[in-house]
Simulated assay, not measured.
Amino acid sequence: MTKPEISYCDIRDWLAGLAAAIELDQIRVDALPKERFPPQYDDGSWRLWRKEHLEFIARLLPTIDEIPPPTLKQIGRLAFKYESAVVNGILLGILADVASKDCAYEELTTAGLFLNELIRRVLLKGVPVAGDARDRITRWVPVTDPLGIAQDTECLYGVPSGCVN
């Protein structure tokens, strides 16, 4: 049986991968023809949304080495035990709260605090499953449309063809 171990490097790679997926998502959206977007689509709002997420991630990255070992251990257990889709929904909720300033933005100033909030929310709502922690953490956020913007009712431009999650 695989152990639920996640390293500081795994967290750094995961957050850097999330940032890269957000940047790639903007590039993909920029390449879509204008007719793919509904009239209510507000390009400026969604660019700002991605930018705010990227700024938040950039703020977390330098604090990864300060994550308390018990938090890292709990994230490993969480990645090992909880369904990726559930964690993804909760993660997107936290990111949306932070980007929209709906939560105490100043309270999630480090990677450790951010991960503790993720742990807290998943433990409240999640249903445990089995799996490999390192593999499961990479599934918490899809590569294509990582913030779920393409599925938002204001957008509905869909995932570009040829993309995978």
Score class of each variant (00 low, 15 high):
Lys3Leu: 14
Glu5Cys: 08
Ile6Met: 04
Ser7Thr: 13
Asp13Val: 14
Ala16Trp: 14
Ala20Ile: 08
Asp25Ser: 06
Gln26Asn: 07
Arg28Tyr: 04
Arg28Ala: 05
Arg28Met: 02
Arg28Lys: 05
Pro33Ala: 06
Pro38Lys: 10
Ser45Glu: 07
Trp46Thr: 12
Leu48Phe: 10
Arg50Lys: 06
Lys51Asp: 11
Lys51Asn: 12
His53Met: 08
His53Cys: 11
Arg59Ser: 15
Pro62Met: 02
Glu66Gln: 14
Glu66Lys: 13
Ile67Ala: 13
Pro70Asp: 06
Thr71Phe: 03
Ile75Leu: 09
Arg77Met: 10
Phe80Trp: 09
Phe80Lys: 11
Ser84Cys: 11
Val86Tyr: 07
Val87Lys: 02
Val87Pro: 01
Asn88Gln: 14
Ile90Ala: 04
Leu91Ala: 03
Leu92Ser: 15
Gly93Glu: 15
Asp97Asn: 14
Ser100Cys: 12
Lys101Glu: 14
Lys101Asn: 13
Cys103Ile: 15
Ala104Thr: 14
Ala104Asp: 15
Leu115Tyr: 01
Arg134Trp: 07
Arg136Phe: 05
Thr138Glu: 09
Trp140Asn: 01
Asp145Thr: 00
Asp145Leu: 00
Pro146Lys: 00
Leu147Glu: 02
Gln151Trp: 04
Asp152Met: 06
Asp152Ala: 08
Thr153Ile: 08
Cys155Ile: 08
Gly162Lys: 01
Asn165Ser: 05
